[in-house]
C-alpha cells in the first residue's frame, strides 16, 4: 500500500492510497489527544521545512507532526534568504540534498515547483502547496474531517464555494472528492471559476442558495484580498452579499451539514463570523487538529518506503 516516493499531489493517489493515509491518521488523532504524544515513526530522520511562501499554520502543523514522530525538524524560511540573492530553486535543493535530509516539506508560489524539486533530490518530498496547483495534505485533512463527521467519504454532496480559480486547496479537493465518488458543486462568480472546470466532473452553480441545496458539506475558501485589485469581483460587500456564507444561506443545505474552511478566514467576507464559531456546524478547529494527524500519517508512510528502499534488496517504484 501507498507505493509512492513523494506526496506531490492528490492526482497520483488511488482510492486505496487515500484510505491508507486516513486510516493511519485516525490512530494519530487518538495519540494526539493523549498527554504523552510521542511516537517514533520518524526516529533518526531529518525533516526540513522549506517555505518559499509565508505560512504560519501549515508550517507549524508540519513541524509539530514531525516532532511528535521523533524527527529532527529544521525550518528554513527561504522567503528571505539565498533565493533572494539569485540562487535558483534547483541550487537550493541540491545544497539541501547534500545534507542528506529524509523528508523535505516544500511550499512554493509557482505551480509545479515542487515537482521540479522532487526530480532533483533523493529524499521524500511533501508538497505543502505549490502555486495554484495542489495542496494535498489540506485535501487529506479535509477528507479525514468529513469521514469522521459523516461516517463515510463517498456519496456525499459537497459544495466548494469561493475563489476556486486561484485555490490549490479547491483543486486537490476536487480530485480527492471526485475519486471517492462524491457529488461536487462549485459555487462562485464566473470570474472565479477556473476555465474548463465544467469538464472536471463537477456541477457549477452561480446561485449560492441553489448550490447549497441538499449539501452535506460546505467548504468555504479564502478570498485572497489581493484578488480585489484584479477586478475579479466588484467589491467585498457585494461578494459577501452573494457568496458569503451566513445562517440564511446555510439553511438551504441539509440540517446536519458541516461547514469547513482551510483558514485563515476573512470574517465578514466569505463567512459570517458567528457561523464560523458555531460549534454545532463549524468544524474549522477540527480541521486544524486533523491536519497534524494527517501530516503525521503521510510522513510515516513515506518514511516506511524510504526505509524499505534503503534496505538491501528493497525497492519502491514511483
Amino acid at each position: 500500500m501507498f507505493a509512492h516516493r513523494h506526496l506531490l499531489g492528490i492526482e497520483g493517489l488511488s482510492r486505496a492510497d487515500i484510505e491508507a493515509v486516513l486510516d493511519l491518521a485516525d490512530g494519530y488523532v487518538a495519540l494526539n489527544r493523549q498527554s504523552d504524544k510521542r511516537a517514533d515513526a520518524l526516529k533518526g530522520l531529518t525533516q526540513i521545512n522549506m517555505f518559499f511562501e509565508a505560512s504560519t499554520r501549515t508550517q507549524a502543523s508540519f513541524e509539530l507532526a514531525g516532532k511528535r514522530l521523533g524527527a529532527a525538524v529544521m525550518n528554513m524560511s527561504v522567503a528571505q534568504s539565498s533565493v533572494k540573492k539569485g540562487e535558483t530553486l534547483i541550487d537550493t535543493a541540491m545544497t539541501l540534498n547534500a545534507m542528506h535530509p529524509d523528508l523535505l516539506v516544500v511550499r512554493h508560489p509557482s505551480s509545479g515547483a515542487v515537482h521540479l524539486l522532487a526530480s532533483k533530490v533523493n529524499c521524500a518530498v511533501l508538497n505543502a502547496g505549490d502555486g495554484r496547483h495542489e495542496h494535498p495534505t489540506q485535501a487529506l485533512l479535509d477528507a479525514l474531517t468529513i469521514r469522521r463527521r459523516k461516517g463515510r467519504l463517498s456519496r456525499l454532496t459537497v459544495a466548494i464555494c469561493g475563489d476556486i480559480a486561484h485555490s490549490r486547496v479547491a483543486r486537490s479537493n476536487i480530485i480527492l472528492l471526485g475519486r471517492m465518488e462524491n457529488r461536487i458543486r462549485l459555487i462562485a462568480p464566473p470570474t472565479l471559476i477556473p476555465p474548463g472546470a465544467e469538464r472536471m466532473g463537477v456541477e457549477i452553480c452561480e446561485d449560492m442558495a441553489k448550490g447549497l441545496e441538499g449539501a452535506d458539506v460546505v467548504m468555504m475558501l479564502r478570498l485572497q484580498r489581493e484578488r480585489m485589485d484584479g477586478g475579479f469581483i466588484p467589491s467585498m460587500r457585494e461578494y459577501y452579499h452573494r457568496f458569503g456564507l451566513d445562517a440564511e444561506k446555510l439553511a438551504n443545505a441539509r440540517p446536519d451539514a458541516i461547514v469547513m474552511h482551510p483558514g485563515p478566514m476573512n470574517r465578514g467576507v466569505e463567512i459570517d463570523g458567528l457561523l464560523a464559531d458555531d460549534i454545532n456546524v463549524s468544524v474549522i478547529q477540527e480541521q486544524v487538529e486533523m491536519g497534524v494527524a494527517v501530516r503525521m500519517a503521510a510522513m510515516d508512510l513515506l518514511a516506511q518506503n524510504l526505509r524499505a528502499r534503503n534496505e538491501p534488496g528493497g525497492a519502491i517504484t514511483c
Binding site: 505551480s111 509545479g112 505549490d130 502555486g131 495542489e134 490549490r168 476555465p195 474548463g196 472536471m200
Partner: peptide, 13 residues
Amino acid sequence: TAGQFASQLGLPA
C-alpha cells in the same frame, strides 16, 4: 492557454 489542462496544472493562462 486557458482551459481544463492549464486549470489542472494551476498555471496562469
